[in-house]
Amino acid sequence: MKLETPVLRMDGVCKSFPSPAGRVEVLKGVDLEIRRGEFVMITGPSGSGKTTLLHIGALLDFPTVGRVLFDGQEVSGLEEDRLCGLRKRTVGVVFQRFCLLSRRTALENVLFRFRYVGGEDRENRRAAVEALETVGLAEAADRPARVLSAGEMQRVAIARAIALRPDLLLADEPTGNLDAASAVSVMECFRRLNEAGLTVLLVTHNEGLLRYASRHLVCAEGVLKS
């Protein structure tokens, strides 16, 4: 039987950072495999290495030791340009504090996804509007990001992340700055996207969100456990 290639795979990933007291080991040999269509949630206390793991998965950082394979292709040793090319189209990232450009409208923020991709103006706009519709914010397209509520901001950030239909959507504490109602609407958004076939990797310290995940992993002291 032919096994499907995982979207993301990490083999023995270690990550350490320099500090005045010497190198700090944040990840200590992480093995992870995320298959297409999964909704994987990693929980763990602050400082456990969740965000570092997510950054490595989002191709924003490199492991000190170990291999990272994206769609079967090893990315650890890729050149800058090829890595950026992968980042452009294959991953979408949602951040805890939204990372929106406050002076721009919701639509312009989503369009910013195409900043380093290019494409036709009309096509980009159509994809951005569609992404906003997917997260239920079509009517807020022309509102400046700074006047949106926190929940709306996070949904705009999700629309930006999915506008190019990435292979993997990664979210770092997406409900960390939201009230309970907004957190639910954002998580419902993730669930709908996952149901539509998008693979999701979400890290959070909020175990109340586990019901949305198809698989749950725990990160503790740099080690990942089922």
Binding site: A58, L60, E80, D81, C84, G85, R87, K88, R89, V93, F95, R97, C99, L101, F112, R113, R115, Y116, V117
Partner: peptide
């Protein structure tokens, strides 16, 4: 810095 991070996350190279 966050804007630089965002741009890099969206595929900007060092040159960009």
């Amino acid at each position: 810095l966050p804007e630089i991070g965002l741009r890099r996350a969206l595929g900007a190279t060092r040159r960009d």
